[in-house]
Amino acid sequence: MTTGHTPMISVHALSKRYGANVAVEDLSLSVERGSIFGLLGTNGAGKTTTFKCVLGLAFPNSGDVRFDGEPLRPELFERIAYVPETSALYEWMTGVDHLELTKRSFRRYDAARARKLVELFAFDPKKKVKQLSKGQQSALALTMAFAMRPEILVLDEPSSGLDPVHQRHVLDLMIDAAAGGAAILFSSHQIGQVERAADHVAIMHKSKVVLQGDVEELRAGEKVVEATFDGDAPSISGLDGDPHVRRVMRQGRVLRAYIRDGGNGVANLIGQSKPASLRVLNQNLEDIFLAAVGDDAKETMATLNQEGV
């Protein structure tokens, strides 16, 4: 039964294995009507597999997925639009053919909106897909998705290959759709985009959700004390063991301490090591993401620093 409190997308304890390889482990999330849920993660974290399992394109080993309280059945796709990470378009068909295909497949298809979206993304729909750039193919897939005015959108890296202007259009379309009551589940490597559009995020790492919640609450929950030293950031006695410090990251000359509260005390402690600069910042989503994925991110950043990238 559908009620006002039933999430539009509800995933409970979803797990997926490929042989001995665990792709998704015990993932749960829910996306409410009018909400944008961002799924962040490192490469291979399991985001795409999650989307596939959610939409029945891959068979989960366990777990339960519901759309507006109902298990997935083909008829529900009248209300769901999916844009996959890699193009699933038919290369030998034109954009016009694909739009016609969408029109014939979905009763909700809005031809006038499709025309506007084609203008917005500025691609030639008369060209065959194989003649379109990767970004234009993404634009066509997004046009097909948004032209049917779906109630549920599942977008896997929807901005992939798009230029910054069209990336912004995608964000605007998502925000507009959510304002109209749609539930959106999307992934992106561009944390800034997620931060701008999403009201909820889940961070996946090594097949698991390591952190999820309301973006504003996550950002408000922690602060970052960031210190820059003249040489390599030193080890500061007592910092790692400080109960206010959730974790410490050292990247070359920069030291960041992620703290739950008591920021001034930690700042004073770091200040005793005479950094060149010291500031206390609100966390952004990138900080939250890096802190959540932990040592891997630290190692990645350290490698990048060593390579002078």
Partner: peptide, 16 residues
Amino acid sequence: NEHLALAWTKPRSRTA
């Protein structure tokens, strides 16, 4: 099979 993400997200059963 190269287009399952498109083919299988339509409001029709796979058999149909």
